[in-house]
Lab assay of single mutants.
Amino acid sequence: VRQEELAAARAALHDLMTGKRVATVQKDGRRVEFTATSVSDLKKYIAELEVQTGM
């Protein structure tokens, strides 16, 4: 499950970095929206997932 969450989070980051205004991911069973202003929060979430998956 964590691998899927990590892939979704990375895709969301890619979307935001390429101009999409809002990206949505499932985080702990709930839907979370990230915007360009919350990229740093999304990067932290990705880092947490990488630690949890041993990457």
Rank of each mutant, 00 (worst) to 15 (best):
A9H: 04
S38E: 15
L6F: 03
D15V: 05
L6W: 04
K20C: 09
Y45V: 05
E33K: 09
A8S: 14
S40V: 10
A23M: 03
K27N: 04
R10C: 13
S38Y: 04
T35G: 05
E50S: 08
E48M: 11
L42W: 01
A47C: 10
G54Q: 09
Q52F: 12
R31I: 15
L6H: 02
G29T: 03
T24E: 08
V22W: 07
T35Q: 06
A11E: 12
E50N: 05
R30I: 15
E50H: 05
A36R: 05
A12I: 04
H14A: 09
K20I: 08
L6Y: 05
D15Y: 06
S40Y: 07
A47I: 07
L16D: 00
Q3L: 10
A12M: 03
E50V: 06
V1A: 10
L13V: 03
A11N: 12
A12G: 04
S38W: 02
E48T: 06
E5L: 12
K43Y: 14
A9K: 01
F34W: 05
V1I: 14
V32Y: 07
Q52W: 09
L42P: 00
V32S: 03
R21I: 15
S40F: 08
T24H: 11
L42C: 00
V25G: 03
D41A: 13
G19I: 02
V25N: 01
M17A: 08
A36V: 13
L16T: 00
E48A: 09
Q52I: 09
L6N: 01
E48K: 06
T18G: 07
A23K: 03
G19W: 02
V39M: 15
F34A: 01
E50A: 07
H14W: 12
A23F: 03
K20H: 14
Y45I: 04
E50F: 06
V51F: 14
K43H: 09
T18M: 11
S40G: 15
A11R: 14
V22C: 13
S38R: 10
V1E: 13
V39L: 15
E50G: 05
T35D: 06
S40H: 11
L13D: 00
A36S: 08
L49A: 02
K20D: 04
A8I: 12
T18E: 12
M17G: 04
V32E: 05
K27W: 05
R30V: 10
A11V: 09
D41F: 06
T37C: 09
K20Q: 11
G29R: 02
L49Y: 02
T18P: 00
T18W: 07
G54W: 08
T35W: 06
V22L: 07
E48N: 08
T24D: 04
V25C: 10
T53R: 07
Q26D: 08
H14S: 10
A7F: 12
A47L: 13
K20T: 11
E33A: 05
Q52D: 11
A11T: 09
K43M: 13
Q3H: 10
A12Y: 02
A47P: 00
F34R: 00
H14E: 11
L49V: 03
S38F: 06
K44W: 04
D28C: 08
T53W: 11
M55Q: 14
V25F: 04
K20P: 01
T35N: 09
T37L: 08
T18L: 08
V25W: 03
T35L: 04
L49W: 03
L42Y: 00
L13F: 07
G19Y: 02
R30Q: 15
A7H: 08
E33I: 12
S40R: 10
D15L: 13
M17Y: 08
L16W: 01
A9L: 14
A11D: 10
V22F: 10
A12V: 03
Y45M: 04
S38T: 14
V39P: 00
K44V: 08
Q52L: 14
H14C: 12
L6A: 02
R31C: 15
A12F: 02
D41C: 14
